[in-house]
Design a protein around this nucleic acid. Sequence first.
DNA 1: GTTCGTAAATTGGTATGACCAGTTGACCAT
DNA 2: ATGGTCAACTGGTCATACCAATTTACGAAC
Lengths: 260, 260
Amino acid sequence: MGLRKIAKKTLSDEVYDQLSGEIVEGHFGAGVNLPAERQLCETLGVNRGAIREALKRLAQAGLVSISQGGGTKVLDFRRNAGLDLLGRMLFRRDNTINLGVARSVMEMRAVLAPDIARLCAERATEADITALRELIESMHAAAEVDDLAELQDLSLRFWDVMVRGSGNIAYELSFNTLRETYDRLREVLVQVMAEETRDVAGHRAIAEAVERGDGGAAKHMADALMEKGTRAVLGLVGALQDATLTPDEADDSAAKGSDR
Amino acid sequence: MGLRKIAKKTLSDEVYDQLSGEIVEGHFGAGVNLPAERQLCETLGVNRGAIREALKRLAQAGLVSISQGGGTKVLDFRRNAGLDLLGRMLFRRDNTINLGVARSVMEMRAVLAPDIARLCAERATEADITALRELIESMHAAAEVDDLAELQDLSLRFWDVMVRGSGNIAYELSFNTLRETYDRLREVLVQVMAEETRDVAGHRAIAEAVERGDGGAAKHMADALMEKGTRAVLGLVGALQDATLTPDEADDSAAKGSDR
DNA sequence: GTTCGTAAATTGGTATGACCAGTTGACCAT
DNA sequence: ATGGTCAACTGGTCATACCAATTTACGAAC
């Protein structure tokens, strides 16, 4: 327990991290050209292959646009990047948390989950329903001994089944990204979201609505469940933001209108 | 008019397209190893750099996992890929449309838009409101001469402003991906969604609610607007799917339970 | 039989240098 | 003002070599 996987980074990963960080934090404004590949080689002290692998990834992420002969141009990531950038934005390079990103994830989760529940109720297979039943039982067991970490894990798996049962590939893929982002805050959130995590009855109500094929009820129950965690986290984020407004860097409230 | 930008593809783009296609269409099952880089070079007839650039992109998209010495393993994209994969999945390599993906996009849009409207109403700046006003006027002008293509473009820009005004980065990024996917079907959908596109009053009602800062009303109005296009497209998709069920390939209804 | 260590084969990671191909911009002829 | 030409710059492709981590097979030790 407590052991963590050792993170290994290749050179191109490091290049990608540095460049994407510079772009997201605005040190390379939209429209300007990145330094030429051969110059980046020299500046960063790596070979051109590593640079190119990183640049291709930046292009795929929607952060830059590469054109032969014309250089590599920085794009406006707010207008061009995909949802995958969330993970990159959650932590700044000084390891502070971007509260605006955390809030956004919670808001999105709160809206998607009820519709996932609705669709799952309308489309779930027998296998899905069985899986939900088993998860609810496990949650009961974990709740008996108040094992919060286990409950959190089971809740994630609960929604895993739900989103697959919804038959909506856009929700599945969004969920993957949101889960990845959420996972990075897991240790922090396990306490904050305890009320939602411990609500086995809430999870059970959704599962039973799914079992009955009652989309409306499933949606309503999911809404109620989400409300608990969402309220707790948004409250915390709000408080932290207010506390952060003291320094000159007005962080998030300012960032909203700053770069458009 | 009618001229289109010439699409240029690099070798690594082509490699990426081929490999991601194979994976998404299931020819490489999750868990198996991709051929070694040096072997892919020979098979595809390109140098190793091009292969590596493509593999790095596949890894970033969540389709494979690369480990030095251990080969490149195919992942379960439904469980690991990000939302960006939507665009890759919309068209199969035989150029047929994946109706399940189209349906998913419409469902997600219908759920996100009302919450975007709600948040925008609560957080919009004066500049946002001005931009919305101008767009509504332009829409009126376009509606006078029933210029559907122009109306569609203005509606997209309307939502562009809304999503930026919502102050939710997750919505912004999701919207970028959804717009990209939607754009590929634009010519088809312009007719199908005409009722929603022509509904200038519906757009105006949302803009006015935003102006008043009335989140509840904005949400409700957006819901009503979305309902028009969503109903039309989902109806069409349903009809097409029923028609497709005649051949043995039961396409989407079957795909749902096939690979889990 | 299991466990552990070792060495060879395999696979990805990095480096170098060369040349091809498209873009840009300065310059010039018309 | 227009269009052509050429040089410089930038990304795209290629070949080859070697480094580093993992896997596998084999055998020694328990």
